[in-house]
Design a protein around this nucleic acid. Structure first.
Length: 261
DNA sequence: ATGCCTACATACTGTAGA
């Protein structure tokens, strides 16, 4: 079972790119972020025609997440628990039946947090606290769980092209990385780091020629519960998609698992 | 230098992203 995550930066602007990628990559489950669309505006017809179920948690203008899947989910939950006043659409969870049990997949879009001297950074940290609490409760189920998405966290120095550029940024500040490590230390496995210790960027800014200069960062992650990590076969960062016409600034990150459908 | 790009909203410019 191939599970991928991709911040597509607008489904309306990216629909042709998304369809081309689905055809080429053939994932079983896709976690999308930044669909920038309300649920009823999500361009689902062509995706469904390719055999995917479509579940969205949208928002007007920005944010918005979705899960596409070849098998029908048994259960869908929208929104990250822990704050009823938070109206931003950044989290959706799907539960799938596989042989011998279930697989639980979450598509998350963690807040950016910049500028750090505004309310945006405390919002990021509190969102990470809520994610930690959610993850802890789900781990108690002892199920295969994949928390996939745009974390807006550069975990370690070698996950960016120049630490000096990022050291004061919300994506890299010590508090940000500490919160990420706290989550990881609950017992998760970072799928990319479990299979590679190289340069594994997932985002290249549109500006200043970052892509041709390979000035990238690794901020899109798949965090695996022990039960999911035990079934991890391989991973892939589909970097070539960044070179396509009208690309997102993020590329798809995928992991293959030994789950029998 | 706080922009350099890109997407979106519904307006010819501002907000947001990272």
């Amino acid at each position: 079972m191939k599970i991928a995550t991709w911040n597509i930066n607008g489904v309306k602007a990216r629909i042709d790119t998304l369809l081309a990628w689905l055809k080429e990559s053939n994932p079983d489950v896709v976690c999308l972020q930044e669909i920038k669309s309300v649920d009823e505006g999500f361009l689902r017809a062509d995706i469904e025609a390719m055999g995917y179920h479509v579940e969205t948690h949208g928002q007007k203008g920005f944010n918005g997440v979705a899960i596409l899947s070849k098998i029908r989910p048994d259960e869908i939950n929208r929104g990250l628990p822990g704050d009823e006043t938070d109206l931003q659409s950044r989290f959706i969870e799907a539960v799938f039946s596989v042989r011998g049990g279930v697989v639980r997949v979450c598509s998350l879009y963690l807040p950016n947090g910049n500028p750090v001297d505004t309310e945006k950074y405390p919002y990021k940290l509190s969102w990470m606290e809520r994610l930690h609490a959610f993850a802890e409760s789900r781990l108690a189920l002892e199920e295969p769980l994949i928390l996939a998405g745009d974390y807006n966290v550069i975990p370690q120095p070698h996950d960016c092209w120049d630490v000096k550029v990022w050291q004061n940024d919300a994506l890299y500040l010590p508090q940000t990385r500490q919160a990420y490590r706290r989550l990881n230390n609950l017992g998760f496995t970072d799928a990319i780091r479990a299979t590679s210790d190289g340069q594994d960027y997932t985002f290249w800014d549109y500006q200043a020629g970052c892509w041709p200069k390979n000035f990238g960062i690794r901020i899109d992650h798949l965090m695996l519960s022990p039960e999911a990590a035990d079934r991890l076969v391989s991973t892939g960062i589909e970097k070539h998609v960044r070179g396509w016409e009208k690309p997102s600034d993020h590329v798809p990150v995928a992991a293959e698992f030994a789950f029998a459908v």
